[in-house]
């Protein structure tokens, strides 16, 4: 009996591993398959034909990738421009409505996103923002601000107030103190929030779909169109491309974001 004690654990671990790596393996197979149809359990022929198709200079994929990256970077800029001052204020000033304000940033998540984005799209029509990069960036920023503000506020809260007082005391003005003491010390947290916003924007689908299409196409939209049309290879390759920054940044965050900052998220 005791000889088999490891069995339940092994089965559970195996199932978890399958749940995580099964879809990824499927993705990898699709990305390398040239022909794969029912009832074959594995691709019929392998090859890189679709990679050439995705990466040929005139392809939709490269254009979408470019769009995705530009939109993600702009979203980071817009989000941080708001999140840094807001996060600092929330962390430092004893605002009576602090809790409420933090909650307000969560609000866009609380409502069904399709309903929200349909109405956003309607309003954006009025301003001529539909189908523009700016419109998509705004939609993504609303989404990204949640992470950005919460993480930035945690990062600022982790900076000892005495360190700022020491700078003020020795003659640095408030702005100088912020840029030479507070911001450098909060930088790892701010970078982490930038990364989260970037990844969120890169993966965002619903908002882009309602506000950007058909003029602005991003990788997730391309992936969607490709899989609807049965081009699983294209979808798989785009998915793999999207996976690269996600994994890379996750490793970065895991390495550089300190536990004391993470512990303050949402407080």
């Amino acid at each position: 009996m005791t000889a088999l004690a490891w069995l339940p654990r092994a089965i559970i671990l195996g199932l978890i591993a399958f749940a995580i790596f099964g879809p990824l393996a499927n993705l990898a197979l699709w990305a390398a398959a040239e022909q794969w149809y029912f009832p074959h359990k594995l691709p019929v022929t392998y090859g890189l034909k679709f990679w050439h198709q995705v990466f040929k200079p005139s392809s939709d994929a490269l254009l979408s990738l470019g769009n995705s990256v530009v939109i993600a970077l702009l979203t980071v800029v817009v989000s941080l421009a708001l999140a840094v001052p807001a996060g600092y204020a929330l962390a430092r000033l004893s605002l009576p409505l602090r809790g409420l304000i933090m909650l307000a940033f969560l609000l866009p998540q609380a409502f069904p996103s399709v309903a929200v984005y349909i109405n956003v799209a309607r309003i954006f029509y009025g301003f001529g923002l539909n189908g523009t990069i700016a419109g998509v960036v705004l939609v993504h920023a609303v989404h990204g601000l949640v992470f950005a503000v919460w993480i930035a506020s945690a990062a600022f809260a982790a900076v000892d107030r005495d360190l700022e007082l020491a700078a003020l005391n020795i003659g640095a003005g408030a702005l100088r103190t912020f840029f030479t003491v507070t911001l450098p010390l909060a930088a790892p947290g701010i970078v982490a929030s930038a990364i989260f916003v970037f990844l969120e924007s890169l993966d965002e689908f619903t908002g882009t779909f309602f506000v950007g299409v058909p003029d602005v196409t991003t990788l997730p939209l391309l992936m969607f169109t490709a899989s609807i049309a049965g081009n699983y290879q294209i979808a798989a390759i785009t998915a793999l491309i999207l996976l690269i920054p996600s994994v890379g940044f996750m490793l970065f965050v895991e390495r550089f974001l300190k536990a004391d900052v993470l512990a303050k998220v949402g407080t």
């Binding site: 020491a166 005391n169 003659g171």
Partner: peptide, 8 residues
């Protein structure tokens, strides 16, 4: 505080 010319 930054204009009081003190050091702490």
């Amino acid at each position: 505080p930054d204009r009081r010319d003190m050091a702490m």
